[in-house]
Nucleic acid binder design. Sequence first.
RNA 1: GCCGAAGUGGCGAAACUGGCAAACGCACCGCACUCAAAAUGCGGCGGGCGUACGCCCUUGUGGGUUCGAGUCCCACCUUCGGCACCA
Length: 813
Amino acid sequence: MAEPYTPQSIERKWQERWAAQGLYRTDLHATDRPKFYALVMFPYTSGDLHIGHWYNFAPADAYARFQRMRGNNVFLPIGFDAFGLPAEEAAIKHGIHPFTWTRQNIERMTAQLKTIGGMFDWSRSLATCYPEYYKWNQWFFLQFYKRGLAYRAKAPANWCPHCQTTLANEQVVDGACERCGTPVTRRDLEQWFFRITQYADDLLDFSEIEWPERVVVMQQNWIGRSTGVEFQLGVEGRPDLHIAVFTTRIDTVFGMTYVVLAPEHPLVDQLTAPEQRAAVAAYQEQARRQSEIERLSTEREKTGVPLGSYAINPFNGERVPIWIADYVLSTYGTGAIMAVPAHDERDFEFAQRFGLPIREVIRPPDRAGDAPLTAAYTGPGVMVNSGPFSGLPSEEGKERLADWLEERGLGRRTVNYRLRDWLISRQRYWGTPIPIIYCERCGTVPVPERDLPVLLPEDAEFRPTGESPLKLHAGFVNTTCPQCGGPAQRETDTMDTFVDSSWYFLRYLDPHRDDVPFDQALATRWTPVDQYMGGVEHAVMHLLYARFFTRVLHDLGLVPYKEPFKRLYNQGIILGPDGQRMSKSRGNVVNPDDYVRQYGADTVRAYLMFLGPWNAGGPWSPQGIQGPWRFLNSVWELASEDPPAPAQPDARAEADLRRLMHRTTKIVTERYASFQFNTMLAELHTYRNGLQRARGRVSAALWDEAIRRLLLLLAPTAPHLTEELWERRGYSGSVHLQAWPTWDEALTVEERVNLVIQINGKVRDQIEVARGLSEEQVRPLVLERPKVQAAMDGRQVRKVIYVPDRLVNLVIG
RNA sequence: GCCGAAGUGGCGAAACUGGCAAACGCACCGCACUCAAAAUGCGGCGGGCGUACGCCCUUGUGGGUUCGAGUCCCACCUUCGGCACCA
């Protein structure tokens, strides 16, 4: 009787031994093998590694191990995303300094992470809250600033009038301050931006990356490129004024019955007639009070106020009223629109509410001319009521009207994006200080590079006011101007943590360098990342910012490529046993540590990989983990003790086992490579079943080879178990340093196959035949079958469909 | 509303390029081992009819293409995810 499988002691033993041997320290300078940079999205230092982390890291680690055994020099780093709001909130709530809180969490999470048994290279770990890291955020900021890619402008922030502080979006709950419940308003503050819009078009080029289609689509929607025309409207009685509007439907311009400006539009004052002043001012005030979220809600009924002035349509000289309404955004296009209610749903709704005229100018092919419009028609059609352009197809009309405007210098074709510049200012303590100094005499002065890092002072005070402690820290704020030496103040805002995560993959290569942000030679050799693995929740922000950042680095000559992550894979989400998203309030949270204690990390890894397709996720079943547990136990038993060799090996059993061995090797290899871990493990189950059948019936040499393969194929998934068995069976070296097994294609196929016989598409019989028979060879065999004779019932064969080695379909009638 | 993904046994799922639907596993049932239980092993396990050889039905719904459809096409229903007045 073999000793039982005790994962706890085995796993501890190998984790210690691997660390002592430096088994997972990647030699980044090795040139004997191709490099492979595998990357997982670094965890936020929340304090606890939850099942979602395991679901990302364990299969990702198996994939990295597979790539390593296949002969690649694999680098799989790990680190911590360590700045951000929760640390600050913990500081206020528990009276603990963000630094302490974060450091403790890093320690705890590091210990948890090590139980996964991953091939992380801990010698190159990093955390973004250390000056050696964030110094380079500041350095990048200065490079961006030099190139005009960082600028300061007024931007609205969420503002709590009661707490007198700005709030992050996460701190706004249902439009109210999470701390005191006061409705949140907007307040304009001077804040810092990165000019990502300059790269909008370039970011739409996905040709060099292999990413999930849906992520690409999300980014495309986010960037939101739309082509159209911007043109000028005259103002009645004010030849000095013009209103610029943007439209994608210039073909509908003869249907313009009014014009709308955003409430914040700079021309509102000049365009407001005296009798409308009070109403307009009141509307503007109301719009200002409303938060962005409320204002953007589509549920709301549309509101607006006429200015009492009129715009002139350049195409026909018609005068139309000018309104302000908050359904027009000041931040998109020109902040003003031509309203065509007949062909735009929003304008239609507004016109109906305020009794404005609705004039049809595009006729759909299937519509009679006399029926009144009951809804906006937004499709293409033939232009009507459009003066000289009537009768043109609308698509052609777009071009003609654009030409007409451009010829007269009244407008031009242009492109707009939904994408806004990246607001990086946070009115918070726990982040990278923005390296800017404000001097009364010299204005905005960047901190000289030699003075970096601008250190985050540790002796800050945390008060529950929500105000950034940096603002109250005299020693930090007050400084001298690097240009004139006079008194000056530091910028007290810190950077968005997405800056940290935009380039961490480069820092991993040499995380403690003090002279450069990253080693350029290593970066040229190792990046871009070959395979990035993480949750789809980062489909837009993080991944888009990193792509932008990398493009800037490219233009700065720091890296020779534009895309940071060549391939991306999104794992799904692990749900609670009830099939719902895990949450503390539902009480369905699965703690991975409990299962690791009970079954060991290898079983947890195998179960996470087996429970469903990796990109789909699914419910965690406390019973389902029994499957992988039993499987690993049976592997343990098979490999621990060899059966007595038979006096005479069974030739049939040997042939079957050999074929199964090669077949399994092939399929398992393909499945690892394509992230199909669930079916990869199903294949190994089948292999295990075959081994149990063959046990004691095949030669000792073949048995040993079959078990050896089992361990190799399973090693990426269950690294501890296989390493232990590898050692016990007397093989030398680590199982994880072995070459991946190969297979002989000819040995993967059966020489006899089951041929299905269908009659009129229904399965009626099957025969076992040699592989590779021709239709002529098969036909008589099929026709003589009694079942076929019976089913044919004397009728004629009209047609025979033969799929070699699969089926014969007789069409009779 | 728009964009995207997906609907298959009691459950998680599998099915390469249109070719035996339900591999692999969980749960369950029966048997063996046991004083007993657990663990383990063996067998069964979509539905209906039939003593049986077997026959019929079944991949969200309704149509279509095809010798043949879970897979392709059209319409619809449901669920999940993203965006949400971007002119």
